[in-house]
Simulated scan of single mutants.
Amino acid sequence: MTSPQPRNPGTALTLPWFEDIAVNTPATEARAARLVATRPLRGEWRAAWLVNAIRCMDLTTLAGDDTPARVARLCAKARRPLSDPVRAALGLDRLTTAAVCVYPTMVRSAVHALDGSGIPVASVATGFPSGLMPLSLRLEEIRHAVGEGAAEIDIVITRAHVLRGDWTALYDEIAAMREACGAAHMKAILATGDLQTLSNVYKASMVAMQAGADFIKTSTGKEAVNATLPVSLIMVRALRDYGARTGVRIGFKPAGGMKTAEDALAWQILMKEELGRDWLAPCLFRLGASSMLGDIECALESHVTGRYAASHRHALA
């Protein structure tokens, strides 16, 4: 089972920590590009990092036609993400994904399908993906998902608060959501593709952490632009700064737009270079992607057999 980090107690809203921040976008993009270009991974090292990506993956289905049967198939994949021959050849006794993420109405089905596995169920909530619902309804949706058995809640913020620079409104909203989560860990989705500037991304990240978010997450996966390395670099710099001020470690979850094994390596390299090895564990790092699992499976089967498998051999559900 994924061992959770201690909850983030949050702080009072502290504007001097972030309100004068200005991000140099070209420098950020150049740094992100250098990270990946200068850290090639080959052979057994590459295989080990891909296995770790599976350990840190939130296997997700967020489709309008989700059914209990589809969720059950996804949960079976979470329990057994690699075929037995490939897993055995890699010397792995047991391997699961970090969590399964579903809509609130599918939480009970996922909890039932994962019974005894130790894999937690995460649920999106708060009017996902837009968040454009009255706050009272968004809080009730959180409480419903937790009552159904969700151990983690992925909330979405009101983007307009960020675009207007209304940090008090954003803080109060996220703090209320954090309270509604109860014992469940909360991941704050910033929908960075809607926030217009990297400076806004940094500020929203800092407010979310001050309000008690246990993870900050890039995207819903439904925006026109989802997780990118430059955005992710700014977010991990924000959580590094927050940790330096408070001593509290906050997790990070990129989501959306990541489809390949190389993507899985790139984001892990970012975490290792910016934050260190501790952030390569599922208690502090998640990959919000399901489609990349098939490509990772193909890559690991190629490593084991010397032959690259067809993608249809590794269908998700």
Rank of each mutant, 00 (worst) to 15 (best):
2 T>P: 08
5 Q>Y: 08
10 G>L: 07
20 D>F: 06
23 V>N: 04
43 G>V: 09
48 A>S: 01
52 N>E: 11
54 I>S: 07
59 L>W: 09
62 L>Y: 15
63 A>M: 02
69 A>L: 04
69 A>W: 01
78 A>C: 07
85 P>N: 03
85 P>H: 03
88 A>G: 08
100 V>I: 09
102 V>N: 03
111 V>T: 10
121 V>L: 02
122 A>N: 05
124 V>A: 07
126 T>D: 07
130 S>R: 12
133 M>K: 13
137 L>G: 12
146 V>I: 09
147 G>H: 10
162 V>D: 03
163 L>R: 06
166 D>V: 14
167 W>Q: 04
180 A>M: 08
190 L>E: 08
207 V>T: 04
209 M>V: 07
211 A>E: 00
222 K>E: 04
222 K>N: 10
228 T>E: 13
232 S>R: 04
234 I>K: 00
235 M>P: 15
238 A>H: 02
249 R>G: 11
251 G>P: 00
254 P>V: 00
256 G>C: 11
258 M>S: 01
262 E>W: 09
263 D>R: 05
270 L>N: 05
272 K>Q: 10
283 C>R: 14
287 L>S: 03
289 A>W: 11
293 L>Y: 01
293 L>S: 02
294 G>A: 13
295 D>T: 14
304 V>G: 01
305 T>F: 12
315 A>Q: 15
